[in-house]
Write a protein that binds this DNA or RNA. Structure first.
Lengths: 300, 300
DNA sequence: CACGTAATGTGAGAAAAAATCACATAATGA
DNA sequence: TCATTATGTGATTTTTTCTCACATTACGTG
């Protein structure tokens, strides 16, 4: 294979020959006419002949240019065809987002219509998992979940917001029970949590400055549920004080069905979007951007 | 037409996919493996997906890479085909060199076999013209001749050597005539020249410091011939002293059939090779290089 | 199973290519 | 002839690409 001339020069040649004008080619290639003119000069020098001659206001290929053009034209249209086929393929494939059931039910589903309307080209498909998610699943393009570092370093991750957990219960609980210190609350009320977040109460207690012994006693009296769904039902039924991500109880707090006397505290985990390696990054970025907008909108 | 990714990145992709190895592609493209690796990364980022994955010691295209490869492979082979077709066409076309008859007969023809043997790919065709040459003739790729500046500035020219003219005559003339000063010679001998070089004797006289009046008198007694061929015949027949380019009388001087008592002088002209615009420059350059080698060989 | 070997990946800086700007030059058509 | 619309080009800046050196990963052999 003889050494090819500069590919950019060939592209300039193709556009100029097709359009019959340096200026038009320059516009198509989003450069100045000077740039195209130089490329053509380079190409002419490569072959040692003039490839264009002036014809009125524009240029026409010389006999040598006419000899070269068909192959170059076909080559570039083949290239462009192939690249856009891949792009189209990537754009048309459904994008699969995995997500824990609780997050799906309580945060994502209410926003799913809007998400599909805003990013229809994503062709979003959501799958949930009741158990621990594996972000490396073959058939998953991205995973949305809370997780604490360290994160897999071979998977790009968009950290969306820190996890904030909050202690919630029905207004009735708070009025009948002491509203004093966190410690007082722990001593008198029943603690509710989920099996998937055994660290939630300890983290909360540590942030509130409550000693381990008091917490241990309280937890011994508490109850643990398999899923957030049951936890919330229990809290709403007035069984005790639940600890849960603020994001997932926001609507109950807003409606007044649950109340949170203490501000939410940040844990070391974050809500993040993990992208499968080798998967369409651009669409992952678009999704992350949308999620981030949605989340900052909630905080507003 | 969607905007294409970097063409060099596509070329790196094509070579890597075809050879199954970054290193092999790098070698083929005459760059380091690092350069190819970067190009592939760029291309992957353009599409937002991985195009290769590791397989043993090398790489194989992912499903996305396999989707892209056929088009890119075909495109590059089409490009390479087209470019080499043009190159081949240019190499195979005969190369026409124009040249004044005197130069052709007395310098080029004796060297023509060697020239064709050294540069067979030139497919050299020589045409001569008895009258003034027009280097712009349509059917001529290059013109070899003596000319003084100013030169056409739209035609590339390779200046090969300065023109040197020398006064020559048979040994008999020099022995019978005075061998004294140039002025003495001019006063006693018959001056011979060609109609195409009316400035030759004046240039020589000026270089030798002879006054105009003496020269004018001498020329009045002299004879002018239409072509160098007749001039040389006259000089060899002992009719007088001829002025001629040293290059064209070198063999007679070497054989001793003519002698030159004074050294040759340089004129403001040069022997040069004029290339027609729009014509294969590379072959012109090869020819110029050969001529230059040949001329320096003669001076040796 | 550690080790040599042969790949690829990557950060920093050097080198090369390309683009721009501003102006020169050339052809056209009123 | 002149305004208009092109292309060509020198000098400079910007961008891209490459190289180098080293890190990392996979393979196969003693």
């Amino acid at each position: 294979m003889a050494t090819l001339p500069s590919l950019n020069a060939l592209r300039a040649f193709e556009a100029t020959a097709r359009l019959g004008s340096v200026s038009a080619a320059a516009e198509e290639l989003h450069v100045t006419h000077g740039a195209v003119s130089r490329q053509l000069r380079t190409l002419g020098e490569h072959f040692g002949v003039e490839l264009f001659e002036k014809a009125g206001r524009g240029l026409v290929p010389t006999s040598h240019g006419r000899l070269l053009y068909p192959a170059v034209g076909e080559a570039f249209s083949r290239l462009s065809e192939g690249c856009s086929a891949l792009t189209r393929h990537l754009d048309e494939a459904p994008f699969t987002l995995a997500c824990p059931g609780s997050l799906l039910a309580r945060w994502l589903i209410p926003r799913l219509d809007r998400l599909n309307a805003d990013l229809p080209e994503l062709r979003l498909r959501v799958v949930s998992s009741e158990n621990e998610l594996d972000p490396r699943r073959e058939d998953v393009d991205a995973t949305l979940r809370f997780a604490a570092p360290p994160w897999f370093d071979d998977m790009p991750v968009f950290a969306l917001m820190p996890e904030r957990i909050v202690a919630v219960a029905t207004p009735a609980i708070w009025t009948t029970a002491a509203k004093g210190s966190a410690r007082a609350m722990l001593e008198r009320l029943t603690l509710l949590d989920t099996a998937s977040r055994p660290q939630a109460w300890p983290q909360w207690a540590a942030a509130m400055g409550v000693d381990d012994a008091t917490l241990a006693e309280a937890r011994a009296r508490g109850r643990s549920f398999e899923h957030l769904y049951y936890l919330l039902e229990a809290a709403l039924a007035g069984l005790g004080v639940a600890i849960a991500p603020e994001l997932l109880v926001a609507s109950e707090l807003h409606q007044g069905r649950l109340m949170a006397p203490w501000p939410a505290i940040e844990t070391d985990a974050s809500l993040g979007l993990w992208l499968a390696p080798g998967i369409d990054t651009r669409r992952g970025e678009r999704l992350a951007e949308w999620l981030r907008r949605e989340l900052t909108g909630v905080q507003r």
